[in-house]
Design a protein around this nucleic acid. Structure first.
Lengths: 128, 128
DNA sequence: CTGTATCCCGCCTGATACTG
DNA sequence: CAGTATCAGGCGGGATACAG
C-alpha cells in the first residue's frame, strides 16, 4: 500500500470502504463468490431474497471497487460470470467469518434481546 | 449453540445479526471498546463524526444484542462506562480485521474506482 | 438469461437545541 | 457528563413491470 489511513479520523477516505461492508448484502454475495464464480441468475437464487435491481447495484459497486470481476460471454442466451479478484479474495475470509459468527451466535443474541426487552417492559413504569 | 442457521436462507433470523454489521458505525465502536472500556464522551470524541443521538442508538442496539455492557456510576457528574461482553469480544477480532483491511487497501480501491469511472466516461457513448 | 425502469417507503443519518 | 427531543433529508432497499 502507499499510505496508511486511520478509519477513526473524521476525514479518512477509508470510511467509504467501511461503508462497503455496512451493506445488507455484501457479505453474503462475497461469501458465495468465494466458493466459485457465479452467474447472475445463480446469485439471484442463492442469495435468497435479493431483487435483481439490488443485486445489480451491489455487483456494479463491488466491480467498481475492484473486488469482483465481470465477464460477459456472448452466447445466446447471454451469460455473465462474476468472480472474486485477488483483492476481493483478500477480504472474503473476514466476511465469511462474520457470516459464520452470525449463524453460530444468533441464538444467544436472540436470548439477549428477549431479556433486554422484558426488562424494559417492567422497569420504566413511572406510573405504577 | 443450540441450532445452526444458514444466513443464505431467506427466513434465516441471523440476517438480523448481519444487519448489525451492515451499519456505518458498529465496526468502529466495537473496535474502540476492544481496546478498553470507554465512557460515552470518550467514544463520542474518538469515533470522529458520530453525533450523540446516533451514538446512543447504536450503543443501545449493541447492548440489547448482548455485545456490550452498560454500567452507570452514580457520581456527580454521572459517568457511564461501556465495555465489551464476552460475546462482543468474540466478534471484535473480525471487525478489527475489517477496519485494518480497509485502511490497508483503500488506495488500491481508490485507483480501481478511478479506472472504472474513466472507462465509463469513454465507452458508453452511443452518440459519438 | 441478464439486466433496466419506475415508484415508493422506511430507516439510518445528520444538525440543532434542550434537559437531569 | 450523558443523554433526549425534534425536524429533515438521502440513500438503500423492496415490489412490480418491462427490455435486449
Amino acid at each position: 500500500m502507499d499510505t496508511a489511513w486511520d478509519p477513526y479520523l473524521l476525514a479518512c477516505p477509508c470510511r467509504d470502504v467501511l461503508d462497503l461492508v455496512a451493506n445488507k448484502w455484501t457479505a453474503l454475495m462475497i461469501g458465495k463468490l468465494a466458493q466459485r464464480p457465479h452467474r447472475f441468475g445463480e446469485l439471484r437464487r442463492e442469495v435468497a431474497g435479493i431483487t435483481p435491481k439490488v443485486l445489480t447495484q451491489n455487483l456494479r459497486s463491488l466491480e467498481r471497487d475492484g473486488l469482483i470481476s465481470r465477464k460477459v460471454y456472448p452466447t445466446t442466451p447471454p451469460s455473465v460470470e462474476y468472480a472474486l479478484t485477488p483483492l476481493g479474495e483478500s477480504i472474503s475470509g473476514y466476511l465469511i467469518a462474520l457470516n459464520n459468527w452470525t449463524a453460530a451466535n444468533f441464538n444467544e443474541i436472540k436470548r439477549s434481546r428477549a431479556a433486554y426487552d422484558a426488562a424494559q417492559q417492567t422497569a420504566p413504569q413511572p406510573v405504577g
